[in-house]
Each structure stands twice: as structure tokens, then as C-alpha cells.
Simulated assay, not measured.
Amino acid sequence: MLNEELIKTLAENCAPVRPLAHPARRALVWFAVSLCYVAIVVAVMGVRPDFLAKIADPQFATELAAAFLTSIVAAAGAFSAGCPARPIWERFAAGVFLLVWVGALAVGCWRDIDAFGVAGLLSHSDIYCLPTILGISIPAALLILSMVRRGAPIAPFVTIGLAALASTALAAAALRLSFRQDAAVSVCIWQFGSVVLLTGIASLFGRVLLHWTMRDALIASFQAHRR
């Protein structure tokens, strides 16, 4: 009976809304706009001088492609998490490309060991990567946040985590296109590590950034109607 009353209240008091586009389509829109921004950032910072030689390296090409694919699939997952009828697996599809990214980095570490011995694993501090990735990712993060807020915040922590992963993975790819830093452990710790850290921190603010104000208003309206 309670459900029937709630449905009746919603039908009488809620204005018609325009359905959201498919999560994949919204992700493509976000990615296209963000990619244009990233292209400008890379152009300003300058493309690494050995780019043509590096992109011919399967390990580097795989790493770069995995970062871009992680970004767009994580964005699609974030939009999917705001649609109650979408399959749960869509929220975790980005994990496949994240694992490919990790695998490419692991291959890089192995190559460094093979070429330089254990000394190839030694990493110098590239702490600048964290603020750089954060700075590059902010505009893309604000854009995807404005887009995911149009959905239903039924999984706020996952949604914000995926949105942050999408933005920071794209920023990390931009960094690889500009900065000539190829020590595998440095890339793994300071660039990939920054992506993981920023994603984890952002996800903690899921409920703050995606507070379901409409739900609270509907509950209050329903309770008032019952009285």
C-alpha cells in the first residue's frame, strides 16, 4: 500500500522530465570536449620531441591507449551509475582497461630490469606529477560532475570515483604526451599512483557532491501528503 501511495504522489506532483541520453553517448560527448581541452594543454606544454619514436613502441602505445580507454569507459560507467535501470557490470568495465594499463607499466618495469638490472627499478622523485595531473584534470572533472548530477545519485561514491578516474586518467595520458619521463617505476608511482590517489580521495566526497536533494523533497512531500 505504501508503494502505491508513493507512486500516486509522484505521478501527481512530479513534472515531466526529458530522459537522459545513453551513458555511452554522454561519455563520448564528454570525452570529445575534454580531448579538445587536453589537446590544447599538450600543445601549450609541448609534445615530447621523441613522440614519433615512442608511439611506435608497443609498450608505450599500449600504455597510452589503455589510459585513454580507461578514461572514456570510466566516464561511461559514471553516467551508467546514475541510471537505476543500467546493469551493474557497466560501473566496473573500466577495470579491464585499468588492468591493461597496469600490465603495460609492468612490462616497462621488466624491460628496465632487463636493460639496467635492479638499478632499472630505482626511481627518482617526480612529485610534480601529482599537482600537474590534478591541475590538468580539473576542467574535465567539473564538466563530468555537471553531467552526472543530472542523473539519479543512487551510487554517489562509485559515480564520483569513476568520474575522477575518467578525468585523471585523461590528464595522465596528456602528461605522457608531453613529459619525457620513461623510467617505468617513476611513471607507475608518480603518474599512475597520482591517478589512483586522486580517484580514491574524490570518491570519499560522493555524498557531498551528489546529494539527492530531489529525493529528500519527494520524501518530505509524501510525508506531508500522508498527514
Rank of each mutant, 00 (worst) to 15 (best):
C83F: 08
V96L: 13
N3K: 11
V17Q: 14
R111M: 10
L170I: 05
L52T: 12
F68I: 10
W89S: 11
V195P: 05
V33F: 13
I133V: 15
G135M: 11
F116W: 10
I144K: 00
R215P: 02
V107M: 13
A169R: 03
D216M: 08
R226D: 05
L35G: 13
A119P: 03
T132G: 02
C14N: 10
K8N: 10
A171S: 06
V96D: 04
C83M: 14
D114H: 10
A24W: 15
A115I: 06
F157R: 11
V208R: 09
L2W: 09
T70A: 07
T62I: 15
F192R: 04
A15I: 02
A172L: 11
G206C: 02
F68R: 01
R26V: 04
P16F: 13
L130Q: 03
A75R: 01
A174M: 03
P84L: 09
P84D: 10
G77D: 04
A141G: 07
F51G: 00
D57R: 03
D126F: 14
T9L: 14
W212S: 12
A85T: 11
S167G: 03
C129A: 15
S167D: 04
L28N: 03
V42H: 02
P16I: 12
L165I: 12
Q59G: 04
P87D: 08
Q223L: 13
P23I: 07
T132P: 00
L98D: 12
A202I: 10
A169L: 00
D216W: 06
P16V: 10
L218D: 09
R111N: 11
G82Y: 06
P131H: 09
Y128P: 01
S146P: 00
A104V: 06
A141M: 15
V195Y: 00
V185H: 00
R111I: 02
P23C: 09
S137Q: 10
G95R: 04
A163D: 03
K54L: 15
E12K: 07
L162N: 14
A61P: 07
G206T: 06
G135S: 06
A104G: 15
V47N: 01
E12T: 12
M214A: 15
V158E: 09
H211E: 12
A152C: 12
A115K: 08
I127Q: 04
R26F: 03
P23S: 07
I72P: 05
S186A: 15
S221T: 14
W110T: 07
T9D: 13
T213L: 04
I72G: 04
P23R: 06
F31I: 03
L130H: 05
T62C: 11
A61S: 14
L28M: 14
I40C: 11
R207N: 12
F79A: 04
L209M: 14
Q59F: 08
V73S: 06
A74P: 01
A24Y: 06
W89T: 07
T70M: 11
G77Y: 02
A76V: 07
I136F: 14
M45R: 11
A81P: 01
D57W: 08
S137T: 02
F68M: 10
C36Q: 02
I144W: 06
W190P: 05
F92P: 01
E4G: 04
Q223R: 08
I133D: 00
I88Y: 06
A93T: 12
R48C: 03
R176A: 11
F222L: 14
A65R: 01
A104M: 04
F179S: 09
M147S: 13
V148K: 02
W30F: 15
L130S: 05
I113M: 09
L197D: 08
G77L: 02
A217Y: 01
